[in-house]
Structures are given as C-alpha cells and as structure tokens.
Amino acid sequence: MDLSFSEAEIARYSRHILLREVGGTGQAKLRAASALIVGAGGLGSPAALYLAAAGIGRISIIDHDTLELSNLQRQIAHSMASIGQGKAASAAGAMRGINPEIDVTPIAGRIGADNVADLVGGHDIVLDGTDNFATRFLVADACVRARVTLVSAAVLRFEGQISTFKPHAGPDCPCYRCLYPEPPPEGMVPSCSEAGVLGPVTGVMGCLQASEAIKEILGIGVSLAGRLLLWDALDMRFRMIGVPREPGCAVCGGQATP
C-alpha cells in the first residue's frame, strides 16, 4: 500500500490524518478502497458526496433515472442545472467537483441479474440507497455470494433505518435476508413518491451510510453488523435493535466464516 501523499493530499485530508483511528495509514486505506453506490437519489446523494470528500479512491455510482424538479427537495448531489440529466452522471459531476483526485464512474442503467455480480464483485463495499425491494434483495444476495460488505439504509416519511450486513465476517453477522426473509407483498409498503419523506431524513441516513462504510474500510469502531438502527425524526429518537443471524437462512446459512 502506497503511504506517500502529495502536499495537496495532506492538506485535503489533514482532519482525517489528525485522527488517531485514521492517520496516514488509514487515509491510504481509503485511497486504495473501492465503493459501489446503488442509487443516486436521496440516500445516495449525501453518501456519494461524503465518500468522495473522504478520498475513497474508486467509486462507482449506478442509477437509471433522470433528474426531476421534485427530486431537489432531498437529492442534494444535484442542482437545477442538472434537471433532465441522468442522475448517475449528475452525481458524478458533483463528486468530482468536491474531489477531482478520485476515480468516479457513473453508470446510467439499472442494476439487474445480468450485471449485479460483476458490479458488486468489483468493489470492496456496497452502499444500497435504492427505493424498491426487488433491487434491495438482488443487491443484498449478490453481496453475500461475493463476500462483500453491504451498508443498507431505507427511509419513509419521518423515519429511517440502517444496518450493515457481512455474514462472511463471522457467525454473529447476519445477511439482509436474516432480517427480511422475503420482500413484502407488492403495494404493502408505500414508496416515498406515494407517502412522502422529509428531505433531511434522507440526508441523515445517507451520511450514516457513508460513516459506516468508512468505518468498515478502516476497521475501526463498532460495526452495525448484527444491529439495526432506527431513527424517528419527529420524536428525535434513535433505537437499536439486535438482528441475529438465522442458521437456516436460505442465503447465508451455509456460508463458511473465518
């Protein structure tokens, strides 16, 4: 691992380097790491900006959608000038504007059965910021098969939740299906476009995703693996719920761990 830094890098990342838990070695780990962000919307926007600012060396961001005026209430990686553009390209532009020293790859398209394995397997960590269950389960299952850590968040109205899934790391670490074995029936859980969402809720949860991803890359702090963090913005209340690994889980139950 290359531990040398230019003067510009030292200035840019000085507040990280000052942290005992990060230092120069940790910043070099961030520079050597790669992340896949699935979705450039309310969750993906803040996560993408903070991962770029943190100096994650290679970031791919995938989204098939184009930017609309209604998105700007919460999707802070975009601006009025980007309306009508693809969200992936718009977010990538914002990321490069913050940190031109990193490698950002926008992918204008859907993540599906034909490409999920290659996308997930080509990165060190995955952040899921999607708004539909089909994609969440697809990405989560692919992460288990590739033994790649997943940081997943979801929001609705005034509430958010986040957890980290890495069953390859040990018997106390569940996968997404240990928490949610199957997607809910179609139409049971409304989307944000149907039920609404407070803009800053997506910002808080997206920032937490970035924070957890950085912690996982550096191997510092206490992981959210095995725990689900819930936040109610109206009550300003955080709750933590334990999530055990299911021995009979159809996806990770038989996966060998270190």
Rank of each mutant, 00 (worst) to 15 (best):
V197M: 10
A225G: 15
G219I: 05
P184H: 10
G203D: 00
G203R: 00
A210Q: 03
P185K: 04
G187D: 03
I220D: 11
P200T: 01
P181S: 03
A195G: 06
P174A: 12
P184C: 07
I220P: 04
A225R: 09
I214S: 06
P184T: 13
C173K: 14
C192T: 15
A225Q: 11
P184S: 13
S191N: 04
E186Q: 10
Q209F: 08
P181W: 03
I217N: 02
E212P: 04
P174Y: 12
I214G: 05
L208N: 04
C178D: 07
R177P: 10
P183K: 02
V222G: 05
P185S: 02
G219R: 02
V222K: 14
L218A: 07
P185N: 06
Y180T: 15
E212S: 06
V204F: 11
G196T: 04
S191A: 15
K215A: 13
I214W: 03
M188C: 02
M188Y: 14
L179N: 01
G206I: 04
A225Y: 09
G221Q: 09
I214E: 03
C207F: 11
Y176H: 15
S193D: 14
Q209H: 08
T202V: 13
V201G: 00
C178H: 01
V222A: 14
P185W: 07
V222H: 12
G221V: 12
P174W: 10
K215F: 08
G199C: 07
S193A: 08
A210M: 10
S191E: 11
A225E: 14
Y176P: 07
A225H: 09
G199D: 05
Y180R: 12
V201M: 06
P185M: 02
G203Q: 03
G187K: 00
V201T: 10
R177N: 09
E182H: 13
G203Y: 05
T202F: 08
C175I: 06
P174S: 12
P200Y: 04
L224I: 11
S223K: 07
M205A: 04
C178V: 07
V189E: 00
M188Q: 14
G199E: 01
P185A: 14
L218R: 12
L224H: 15
G219T: 10
A225S: 14
P200R: 11
V189M: 00
E216Y: 05
D172E: 15
A210P: 08
S211I: 15
L198G: 00
G206M: 07
S211L: 15
P200D: 01
S223I: 08
P200C: 04
P181F: 02
S191P: 07
C192A: 15
Y180L: 13
S223Q: 07
V201S: 08
E216I: 09
P190T: 08
R177T: 13
D172A: 15
L208E: 08
V204C: 00
L224Y: 15
E182G: 04
V222Y: 08
P190A: 00
I217P: 10
P183E: 03
C175R: 11
E216D: 14
G203H: 00
C207G: 12
C207K: 01
